[in-house]
């Protein structure tokens, strides 16, 4: 299973041209913030915040081809939406694992360009 769809990333690079590096950097900064936000929202039991941060991370991850990460975020978003956070921590842990891999790949891309 691929963690980041390289073909999508290539297309994005074509589209963004000079802005591509900027986009990757923005993603890395944003996603870092969202990952922390999700954890603190779970800790605080704030379902709405879980939903919002997971939604945001889901969107940008999907756009960058991190399909698996986006799917874990979707699960967290729906838990938040349904106000059912009992399984949130374990899903979060899985998501975090995936996130670390995606982060490595994106950082690698950033170094290359």
């Amino acid at each position: 299973m691929t963690h980041v769809d390289i073909e999508m990333l290539t297309e994005l690079k074509e589209l963004m041209e000079d802005e591509f590096k900027n986009l990757l950097q923005t993603y890395l900064d944003d996603s870092e913030k969202h990952v922390i936000q999700i954890q603190s929202a779970i800790n605080a039991g704030d379902a709405n915040d879980v939903r919002g941060s997971a939604h945001s991370l889901k969107g940008s991850s999907g756009n960058l081809g991190a399909t698996q990460l986006a799917e874990f975020c979707r699960q967290l978003e729906f838990m938040g939406r349904d106000n059912e956070l009992s399984a949130a921590q374990s899903t979060y842990d899985t998501m975090l694992e995936e996130y670390q891999i995606v982060k490595k790949i994106i950082s690698g891309e950033l170094m290359k360009s």
Binding site: M16, E19, L23, T26, D30, S60, N63, L64
Partner: peptide, 17 residues
């Protein structure tokens, strides 16, 4: 209108192109 910076950047690029 999107709160996610990365998504906004992508859309912006598509629409401007």
């Amino acid at each position: 209108a999107d709160d996610n910076d990365a998504d906004r950047m992508i859309l912006n690029a598509i629409v401007q192109k």
